[in-house]
Each structure stands twice: as structure tokens, then as C-alpha cells.
Nucleic acid binder design. Structure first.
Lengths: 226, 226
DNA sequence: TACGTCCTTGACGCTTCCTTGACGCCCGCG
DNA sequence: CGCGGGCGTCAAGGAAGCGTCAAGGACGTA
């Protein structure tokens, strides 16, 4: 299956070249043009690896690394123009996984990204399938089985459930659900949440009136409880 | 088996010479005389490799490379009169796989084309045959047999089926089918999907009205079920 | 030129899904 | 004690997607 890389790079030409090359090698690519949006993108898209240029306009590269390391262990590959060892050491110390110096060969960069993802997966293998009670959620095939038999979900129901499954056990805020399932601009359509949470419960819960897995936290959001 | 090469070359004499030589070496050859028709041809004929002359009348060669890399990872071998490294680097960075400078030896060109195809097949190893129920799908020979007897498919039907077969058991999203079978820009032509899914079912399913192999998931896409 | 193959497009009926509205419940707060 | 906001439920309307048939029309070939 294909992996997702977040490219944080402020120079448009290089960002574009990287995106094209990565896509042609089967990566799913998300780009951000500065540190702050890079941190945001990492939080919302959950990439498998981050490719981070140290020379950003808004934040020092080390701040971005710290900002990521505060909450995620996603592998970080640093890209830098500086030849010398000083901030290489600093970056690696802060928690970066690898370091590539400009100019670089695209082949080498690809190899290092692949290696970073591979190492991370050895430590914590990617789950393409999530099990919750009698529920088996197959993220790759976009399917749910309840006690062994397939359950039919509509596209929107699936998008909702998938989002919760990817954040298993974590509370997903109302606004994030609305934004990621219905798109930006729907952050205040709270009614949708209630309708679709009810539909999912009817299809997935043993007792829809007293859900044990798809739990509401009033005023905040929803959680898929293991 | 024979591979298909798309030759994008504006100079008629050279295009003809290339076509003759390639055919005599067992290649199936499709030609295009400018960038735009080259992109079209790539989308409609699905070559195994593209041989691209950078000096085209209508588009910059780099635009052609980007246009291809937006949706396909077919290997690209660039042909150029310019001796020096600048646009070589640019072409390779944009996602070209190899670079040949004019004048060139036909032998060498052949070897590089073969190598490009070989590398591509190593990255995405070809399972040469897929069996689902009474269907035997031979990816290498581009053939389908149903209960032992050959079934005639049109090129488009084949492209559709091949895509599903290469993702056996996985859901292939509507947009991906449209993009990879009809080319970029056709992502919203949902009607094509219905027409061709029906044709394939008529030819391949025991009961076309209740398909057991070519299954559609409403709003999402199609799956070839083992 | 005539023919055959195949892609494209239109029309129609049917099913599925999204959206929206109405209503009742619970709970905190004035 | 009444009120309002967030939540859960049900149902209806319309929009979008799906399956099918068939008629142009482009293209290559006899």
C-alpha cells in the first residue's frame, strides 16, 4: 500500500519537483510552505514520514522538529543547505531521523525516505485493520465486518468511521470530524454529526441506544472506544 | 512478449527511422508528433515506456514530463540534442528515468529502453496471471478466459479489467479508474464506468444482473472479488 | 466506398444516499 | 420552575449514482 509523505518546503520550484518525483514513485504527497502550516498539516493528515526543509521563513527548523516531537513519533527527514555538522547534530539530537544536504540526488532522497518509513514500521507496524469488540475495520479495503459478516456503509458513514478508527481511543473534536468528512466550511453543521452517529450505531452497535464503541462526549466530540 | 513504446518525436524522418528500428526489434510502436498528442496517446494507449524528444514544437519537454507524471509512473526515456547537463538534471528531477543525447547509437537506445522497462517491472512486480472463479486473467498476454475459452475484450474493457485485477480484492476508487483508464481530466465522466462495467459483466459474469466478481460499491468504486 | 469495430453520448427507470425538518429528551442555569 | 442548547431519533424530499439499451460517429481496413 502507498505511504503518505508531508513535504515542508518554502521554495515553490523545489516543492513541486519533490511532489512530482514522489508521486511518480507511488507516494501520496501533502505539501506545506512554512513551519506553522507544516505542523497543522501533520496534525490533520497523519503522514507516514515528514520531509522538512530547515530554512523556513517563519519558524526555525528546530522549532518544527520540537513541535512535532511533542506529540508524534513520525519519522522526520531533514533537508538542509548547510554543509557543516553543527545543526545536523542539533537536528538529530532533537529527534530527526535522517539528514540530507543540498544539493542531493533524488534517488538518494527516495532511498532515505523509504528507509525511514521502514524503520518506523519495524518498531510500530502500520495497522491496516482495526479491531474493536466484535467489529473488524479494514482500512485498506474500506470494509467493516460485525461478528464476521460484512456491514454495508455509505461513503459518508465510512469516512466518519474511518476517521474515528484512525484515532482509536482518542477524542476527535466535532469540528475536525465535520471538516474532514464534509469539507471545510461545514464546521457548524452539527446536525450531520448526530444523524450519522446514529446511523453508524444502528449498524454497528449491539445496543444503539447505549453505545459502547461510538461514544459521544457532549460539547466536544466523538471517540471510538477499544 | 512484446512491449509497447510511445515515441514522441516531431521530426518525421527520425520518427520513422525509430519506428522501423523498434518494430524490427519486436516493439509495438505508437508515435506522436507533438507534446499534446503525446499526452493524449499516453492516456489512450498505455505504453510500457515513453521515448520523448525534448525539442517539440508545441510544449516544453518538461511540461510533457510533468503532464505524464501527474497520473502515471510509466518510465520515460528522454531524447535531446543538447549536450550539457542543465536540462538533463531538470528532466530527471521532474521524473524522467533516463536520458540519451543526440546523436545516439540505435543499439544503445534499445538497451536503455529495455532497461527502463525492466526496472519498472522490478518496482511493481508483474503477477502474470490472476484467477477469480472461472475467470483466468493473463496480465502479460492481455487475455481473459472464462471456463477455458477466450473472451474478446476491447482495449478499454481490458484496461478496466486489468486495473481491477492488479488490485484484486481491493476497492479501486471511481476517480482512479477514470484517471488510469481514460486519462487525466476524465475524473467526472462517471457514465463511462457504468457502461463499461455493464459490458464486462455481460462478457464475464454468469449472472450479469447479480455480479459476483465485478462488484460496485455505491459512491466509492469497484472491486474485483476473488 | 462500404463495412466492422469500438468509443462516446443520450435517455430512462431504478436505487441509494444526503440533506433537512420536526420532535422529544436531558441537563445546566437563570 | 421555565428556558435554551446540545443530543438522539424518525421520516420525507430531492439529488446523485447506478444499470441498461441503443443510436450516432470516429477510425481503420477491406
Amino acid at each position: 500500500m502507498s505511504h503518505k509523505v508531508l513535504v515542508v518546503e518554502d521554495e515553490p520550484a523545489l516543492a513541486r519537483a519533490l511532489a512530482i518525483n514522489l508521486r511518480s514513485h507511488g507516494w501520496e504527497v501533502v505539501t506545506a510552505a512554512d513551519g506553522r502550516s507544516g505542523l497543522d498539516a501533520a496534525a490533520t493528515t497523519h503522514p507516514d514520514v515528514v520531509l522538512l526543509d530547515l530554512g523556513l521563513p517563519d519558524l526555525d527548523g528546530t522549532e518544527v522538529i520540537s513541535g512535532l516531537r511533542g506529540w508524534t513519533s513520525v519519522p522526520i527527514v531533514v533537508l538542509s543547505a548547510r554543509q557543516h555538522g553543527e545543526d545536523k547534530v542539533e537536528a538529530l539530537d532533537l529527534g530527526a531521523d535522517d539528514y540530507v544536504t543540498k544539493p542531493f540526488a533524488m534517488n538518494e532522497l527516495m532511498a532515505r525516505l523509504r528507509a525511514a518509513v521502514r524503520r518506523a514500521e519495524e518498531v510500530a507496524p502500520t495497522v491496516s485493520t482495526v479491531q474493536v469488540g466484535g467489529l473488524l475495520i479494514d482500512l485498506a479495503r474500506k470494509r467493516v465486518a460485525r461478528d464476521g459478516t460484512d456491514v454495508r456503509l455509505t461513503p459518508t458513514e465510512w469516512a466518519f468511521l474511518e476517521l474515528l478508527a484512525r484515532n482509536l481511543g482518542r477524542l476527535v473534536p466535532r469540528e475536525q470530524v465535520l471538516r474532514e468528512v464534509w469539507g471545510p466550511g461545514y464546521e457548524h453543521e452539527g446536525h450531520y454529526l448526530r444523524v450519522y452517529a446514529a446511523q453508524l450505531r444502528r449498524k454497528l452497535e449491539d445496543n444503539p441506544a447505549h453505545p459502547r464503541h461510538l461514544v459521544t462526549t457532549s460539547g466536544l466530540g466523538y471517540t471510538l472506544e477499544p
